[in-house]
Amino acid sequence: MIIDAHQHFWQYHPVRDAWINESMQVIRRDFLPEDLAPVLEANGVHGCVAVQADQSTEETAFLLALADQHDIIKGVVGWIDLRADDIHEQLSQYAAQPKLKGFRHIVQGEPDNRFILGENFCRGIKALSQYHFTYDILVYPKQLPAVEEFVQQFPQQQLIIDHLAKPDIRAGELNAWASHMRRIAQSPNVYCKLSGLVTEADWQHWQPDHFKPFLEVALEAFGANRLLFGSDWPVCLLAGAYEEVKGIITDYISTLSTTEQNKIMGGNAISFYHL
């Protein structure tokens, strides 16, 4: 079974979605399950994990409502204020939602590169494992030193790095990012998504070869058992069609065993998110 482990839905709102700037006209509209379903079918993908794009409890409710209505959504990664004093009460209520698999905070947008190490934030992370929730790590390379410290604090928590931590593929800046990722991967509870790559490259002029050095580091560091395919649809449409994004990954892993390919393209998502 092929699972897209990372995509988004939204009903476009110019204020809430101000991050979609003038250069992103192609995604300045609604994107809903009825838009994605034919794309998944055309690409032989059997389901997806819907990930939050807005930091609000309303976003979590929105995604869960869509998941109740559309079987293609196998799991939801929502948002919760991990620093809240009543974090346990909130998580206890969310634990009753079978399709809610975990949470994400847009740490890449925080001005403090060590935000992820904040005492209250880490208190919230510590609570997640008690309710069997995962946590998606969304950061830029400059925040990876803090992530190294972070993952070591939570050896029992299922963690996953989104978009390979957004390396600068356009500039080909590999070495510092690779060193951090290799050290982070030494924690066996940390997984990584092969997603969001085309939007870190030159949107108009990328070539498949541009991604290979970064994919090689990811495969070497995490192995086939801890890598997940994700499209980052519809954000990926800024730089490539769904089939192109999927093709970058399937072409790269084509020399692996069938078992390893199946894990990356779906098995690991099913296992990590308990789909």
Rank of each mutant, 00 (worst) to 15 (best):
V151W: 03
I253C: 11
N120P: 09
Y135W: 08
A50V: 02
Q7R: 06
D168Q: 10
A178K: 10
H274V: 09
S23M: 05
W10E: 00
L144P: 01
L117K: 04
D202S: 08
D251M: 05
H205F: 12
A224S: 15
L256P: 05
I161E: 04
N268W: 11
W206C: 09
G109C: 07
Y135C: 07
K193D: 08
E22Y: 13
L40D: 13
E41R: 14
E220I: 05
E243G: 03
L66D: 04
N225I: 03
A224H: 14
Y273M: 04
E110K: 15
Y12V: 12
I106N: 04
L117E: 12
M265S: 14
L227V: 05
V39G: 04
I137M: 01
N175W: 02
Q25E: 12
F62V: 02
S23H: 13
F272W: 07
V217F: 07
H88C: 10
S231A: 09
G172Q: 04
H8A: 04
V151K: 06
A221G: 01
N120I: 06
Y242M: 10
H88E: 15
L66I: 04
V15R: 15
Y242F: 14
D30S: 13
L32V: 14
Y12I: 12
F133D: 01
G124T: 12
H88G: 02
P33K: 12
F121D: 01
N43Q: 10
P98R: 09
T60E: 00
A65V: 01
G47K: 12
V245W: 02
G47Y: 12
K126R: 14
Q90N: 04
K212I: 14
G172D: 05
C236L: 13
K99T: 07
P188T: 05
M24H: 12
E260N: 13
H132E: 14
V245P: 00
E59M: 05
A84V: 00
F272V: 03
E58S: 08
L36N: 11
A42M: 10
G267A: 11
Q156T: 15
R16S: 13
L159W: 00
V107N: 03
R170C: 13
R183L: 01
H163V: 02
W177T: 01
R114Q: 06
Q90M: 02
Y131G: 00
V15S: 15
H132L: 09
A127V: 02
F133P: 01
I264P: 11
S195H: 08
W19G: 10
I3A: 06
I80E: 05
D30A: 12
Q93P: 01
S271E: 15
E22K: 15
F133K: 01
F103W: 00
Y131P: 02
P145F: 08
Q207V: 11
G230D: 00
